[in-house]
Amino acid sequence: MDPDAVVRTTRVPHGGATDSSVLDFSANTNPDRPNGVEAVYAEALSAATRYPDDDYPTFRAAAADYVGCDADSVVPTAGGLEALRLAFEVTLAPGDSALVPEPSFGEYDREIRLQGADPVAVAADELLDTDPAPYEVAVVCTPNNPTGELADSDRLRAFADHCRQSETTLVVDEAFLDFTDAPSLAGEPGVVVARSLTKLFGLPGIRAGFAVATGELGERLAVARRSWSLSTPAAAVGAYCMRQTEFVEATRRRVASERERLADSLSPQFDVHPSDAPFLLCDVGERDVDTVVETARERGVAIRDATTFPTLDSHVRVAVKRPDENDELLRALTDV
Rank of each mutant, 00 (worst) to 15 (best):
V192H: 01
E102G: 01
D276E: 15
V316A: 04
H162M: 12
D313I: 09
P274A: 06
N35Y: 12
L128N: 02
R157L: 05
L266M: 07
L177M: 11
V336D: 02
V193S: 14
T77D: 03
R113W: 08
V137I: 04
V318L: 04
T251E: 12
A83C: 08
V74N: 01
A61P: 08
A39R: 15
S97L: 02
D181E: 10
T58P: 00
V192F: 01
A124V: 11
M242Y: 07
R225N: 09
P134E: 08
S46C: 10
D152G: 03
E246R: 15
A78S: 14
R226K: 07
A211Y: 05
R157E: 09
G202D: 06
V212K: 04
R113G: 03
R297K: 03
V37H: 07
V272T: 03
L197H: 11
T29M: 09
T198H: 12
S21T: 15
V74T: 07
E325F: 12
V12E: 06
L203P: 00
K199C: 11
D24P: 14
G79V: 14
G205M: 11
Y66P: 01
A175V: 00
Q165A: 13
P143M: 05
I206H: 11
V37R: 12
T308Q: 08
D96N: 11
P146N: 04
D305M: 10
R220Q: 10
D264F: 00
E111W: 00
P183M: 03
L177Y: 07
V284L: 10
G95D: 06
R225M: 08
E107P: 00
A182E: 04
E43Y: 07
A235F: 06
V22S: 13
E107K: 02
T169A: 08
G15M: 01
A138Q: 01
D327A: 15
P134V: 13
E298C: 00
V320R: 01
A151R: 03
P132H: 06
F59N: 08
A250V: 12
D65K: 01
F247R: 12
L197Y: 10
D125R: 13
L156N: 02
V293I: 14
T245P: 10
V37N: 10
